[in-house]
Design a protein around this nucleic acid. Structure first.
Lengths: 188, 188
DNA sequence: TGTACATCAGTGAACGCGCGTTCACTGATGTAC
DNA sequence: TGTACATCAGTGAACGCGCGTTCACTGATGTAC
């Protein structure tokens, strides 16, 4: 029996390719992620990679879709707890930097992809639902946006290395501190 | 006298190139911005563009530097007013989407560029100063980060087209609503 | 248990293209005298 | 006012390269009978 490295059929090339693409995006940004480099990392012809995703944009689209799915799954575990929802959001971004980067970069994606649209709107609905359960009534939307923007900004700045040293190292802790501050004002 | 279009010397090619680069980034993301396309837009040889920036990365670095300088100038007009500082931040991002995109994308920049480092730290200092003047004492850093993350997140989500329709259209108004919410909690 | 066949996964070669960079050179500008 | 010269801005051609996409084909897998 041939070793896993030299089998004709890879087994799950699609998943492996997404992993390689994520690693490339994470380390060098989207421009460092090419069809051919992904294939090289998996010792596979680049036509094989294209075979699974249609074209290059298809890789990013699949990555973004997977990102929204993972995020939704993560958030689902913290329904109803606004603070933990925010912390989970940041943890997702830090743990999946490539997915996160690609999810909010429309210029890289197939705008009309059905799976992407589905995954995205499921996630968005969850974020809004989280806020609704907290506030209720007037100002709900603004609180939801505030919370989302806050954690999104924290995650983005952290990933960009823009947070000041000493503070940027534990984004989850910052999120707790900062969200508590916001929550304190709301609860009075 | 030759027309402006056919002069040998452009006049201010450096500035013009930055403008063209910004337009390209704004409409198609950083990957749509190439040395050759910038040159094409200005009817100039691409070697001329390289002459001014050294290499491609030099263009993005110059754009980011200009961005930090513009942002600092904008923020300087609202020293001491936390809310207006935030609104100005968002207004800058929306008005200079390409600069904003490139400023926080380290993989595109010359990490060791002196002018960039100077402009960046001047801006950061201003943001921190704004928060310090508001809060004072314990929790200052966390409030500064919270405010920054909030407006950064709002701007980023708006530019990505991720804010829900109806809310995403006037990011400045959202900022006011949301910052007022945060400020209300703090002030009690 | 075998055999035929459809389907799917991956190959390998070829394509044309646009890219960033380099370089010797030319045209324009400004400054010193 | 002229002239010489240094400096700076921009040209144009050439380079090699890696890219995304396409296509006819082959190998592997699974399913029906």
């Amino acid at each position: 029996m041939p070793s896993a490295d030299q089998r004709y059929h890879h087994g799950d090339l699609r998943r492996a390719a997404l992993g390689a693409a994520a690693a490339l995006v994470a380390s060098g940004g989207p421009s460092a992620c090419t069809v051919r480099e992904v294939a090289r990392r998996l010792d596979v012809s680049h036509a094989a990679v294209t075979h699974h995703f249609g074209d290059k944009r298809g890789i990013f689209t699949a990555l973004a879709t997977e990102g929204f799915e993972r995020l939704a799954a993560t958030l689902a575990g913290h329904r109803g707890d606004f603070l933990e929802l925010g912390v989970a959001y940041v943890r997702f971004a830090v743990g999946n930097p490539a997915h996160f980067a690609v999810m909010f970069e429309p210029s890289l994606l197939h705008a009309d992809d059905a799976a992407l649209a589905t995954a995205r709107s499921a996630t968005t609905a969850m974020l809004h639902g989280g806020a609704r359960s907290l506030a209720g009534g007037a100002g709900t939307a603004s609180v939801a946006i505030a919370g989302w923007a806050l954690v999104h900004g924290l995650a983005t700045l952290h990933l960009a290395g823009a947070l000041p040293a000493g503070l940027g190292e534990d984004p989850e802790a910052i999120t707790r501190a900062v969200a508590a501050e916001l929550g304190r004002g709301r609860r009075r």
